[in-house]
Design a protein around this nucleic acid. Structure first.
Lengths: 211, 211
DNA sequence: ATATTTTTTAACCAAACAGTTAAACTATTT
DNA sequence: AAATAGTTTAACTGTTTGGTTAAAAAATAT
């Protein structure tokens, strides 16, 4: 049916109660945050009693942490693979933009969720939550530096390039409602407009790194 | 001392109790959101008793709404002025980037706060909270179309240009902790690096719109 | 000084909430 | 079918939280 990239809960089981609870928690925590999502609401959405939450997942904090880990562990390996993969720089950038815009447009709340969590408890991330295999963009960086040295692209720090690309891919979707206001578009118009972004971002980026 | 642009509470009074309460609420709501910030915490930060909050501001909801309005009404006129001002396109873009990066780097939580609120209650914004004078970027849009027609810049929809510029200015600061992880930098290194962004974004944008 | 209004506080209240308990119900094993 | 382990529930508990009240203290007016 649809094997597009998607950051969604996919812990162990299939349709078990445990799984349904986790899915409900995942959806509500990502949308409303730790304080915004209530245990009763999670129970209702999972179609079970509140006490069951505590039977399967000891506390709200524990459940929340599991959700955070699940989100992180699905979001970062995606970046990792792309940054560390082989192939010429241009191809890599094209694939990154295509994949990442696809990913974010299907999971608009996830970046906001991750950023909020990183702000809320920065230390926890480095100590416990984060996987040991954070994407190491050095391969990508060296590749950019090489192209600069060869004169194929203009001089720029690869870190800026990475930040710029990610910003152009992610922010428009995160801030979609804001841009809707700013551009005065209807939801339909905006969706149509957003579907152009894959190509626009590519043009924008490639033009901007020309020598 | 410091007359840089700053989105901060500046409702009526100076150092009155009422003002101190509002300032405390502003700070905590922007950082922690409606559910995350507690009334007791606001009272503590303002250095007063909790009951005083309800003496000056009837309910949490009311106080929150005032904070939201204050944030919105300081963030948007800033954009408005720049989008509707006179002057050649290039100058306008330069000023916009300088001003906006300065603004956001001093108020990193504000964009996140606005976006979260827009997601939480999209209707409220259009009905009550939003000022009637939303920035109308048509002047800017027509100017871009003109430059395209003259062949001074490559063909592109002005809406994409605006979104791209805003994304490049705002997102790196909003997602600072995420980039810290991704780039493996210390807070000091990252701050140093971020200070380069004004110039980098300008180069990136101008290069990308060349014919 | 006395009265009056504004400001501030401690103590209290009711609702919402995370979490607990003990019992019942179901499915599986023996 | 009896025992056992796994699953689900209703009812309860203690804490947090938004909000109230009544009275004291401070400031202002008469």
């Amino acid at each position: 049916m649809d094997n597009s990239p998607n950051i969604s809960p996919e812990i162990p089981g299939g349709d078990s109660t445990e799984q349904r609870i986790f899915d409900a928690a995942h959806e509500l925590f990502v949308q409303k945050g730790l304080d915004g999502a209530k245990m009763q609401e999670i129970a209702d959405r999972a179609g079970i009693n509140k006490a069951l939450l505590h039977y399967y997942y000891r506390s709200k904090e524990k459940l929340f942490e599991m959700v955070v880990k699940a989100v992180i562990n699905r979001a970062f390996p995606a970046i990792r693979q792309l940054l560390e993969s082989d192939g010429p720089l241009e191809q890599k950038i094209v694939r990154f933009i295509d994949f990442y815009i696809e990913l974010i447009s299907r999971n608009t709340f996830v970046p906001l969720f991750i950023i909020t969590e990183l702000n809320r408890q920065p230390d926890r991330f480095f100590e416990t939550i984060f996987p040991k295999d954070i994407p190491r963009p050095e391969v990508f960086f060296r590749q950019v530096e090489q192209e600069v040295a060869l004169g194929n692209i203009r001089p720029l720090k690869p870190q800026h390039l990475l930040i710029n690309i990610v910003s152009l891919c992610v922010f428009p979707f995160v801030a979609k409602p804001m841009f809707r206001v700013l551009l005065g578009m209807s939801p339909q118009e905006l969706s149509q407009f957003m579907s152009e972004r894959k190509e626009e971002v590519k043009r924008f980026v490639f033009q901007s790194i020309k020598p």
